[in-house]
Nucleic acid binder design. Structure first.
Length: 208
DNA sequence: CTCCCGATAT
DNA sequence: ATATCAGGAG
């Protein structure tokens, strides 16, 4: 299956979104991990509204490990899936305390064994805090990769493999952030703004 | 596959 | 009213 020229896509994205980065607010790897768990099926804007007070109350993995679960649930409730997320944060932090000395593990294999942490979360955290290249396949990356004809798959792991094959390794993290920004601002799920898309002339799905 | 689940845009 | 939002687990 043919697809648009990758070099052109990368160049256009660089011009449109230079230095695109994570929109979640955080100071430490642990904070980014918590924020990313909270971001599942929820806008980053809403996560950023909850995390300042949360991170002021809970400083370390041990603090989250020892938190009252119902209190934690209420504190993160606006992000949705709050029972699952609170439990994930707590069990996750307990394992970080017990098995990793309170530090977020630094490899993908270790990260994905943590409860509530899948490849999307692991790749995002490792890319940001350890500069380990990885494709972050979230809802935006999945949608744009398909619209651009860069993959035919729906399974996030297969999409990740397709994109890793197409994109130079050193660009994986930046490319993910750029696609996500483009997905949020222009190539939106419900009403894509093809008329102001920098990729419209080479996008198989463009209506402009 | 289903379930978790509140907030916002359309 | 309903689709969607920086997903992951059972």
């Amino acid at each position: 299956m043919s697809h648009p020229p990758i070099e052109t896509i990368l160049k256009r994205l660089d011009e449109a979104y230079p230095g695109a980065t994570c929109a979640l607010n955080y100071q430490t790897p642990l904070q980014l991990l918590i924020a990313t768990i909270l971001s599942a099926q929820c806008t980053d804007e809403r996560v950023n509204k909850v995390t300042p007070s949360l991170f002021q109350e809970y400083k370390t993995a041990r603090d989250f490990a020892e938190a009252d679960l119902e209190t934690l649930q209420e504190e993160i409730r606006p992000t949705g899936f709050y029972k699952n997320k609170a439990k994930a944060i707590q069990t996750c932090c307990r394992r970080i305390v017990e098995e990793y000395g309170g530090e977020v593990p630094s490899t993908l294999e270790e990260m994905v064994t943590l409860p509530g942490v899948g490849r999307k979360t692991a790749n995002l955290v490792l890319g940001e805090t350890h500069h380990i290249p990885g494709i972050v396949v979230d809802t935006h990356v999945r949608r744009l990769a398909k619209r651009l004809g860069l993959t035919q798959h729906d399974d996030p792991e297969k999409i990740e493999q397709d994109l890793m094959r197409l994109i130079p390794r050193e660009r994986w993290t930046l490319f993910s952030h750029q696609l996500i920004h483009h997905g949020r601002q222009v190539c939106k799920a419900r009403k894509p703004a093809c008329d102001r898309c920098v990729l419209k002339d080479l996008c198989p799905s463009s209506t402009a």
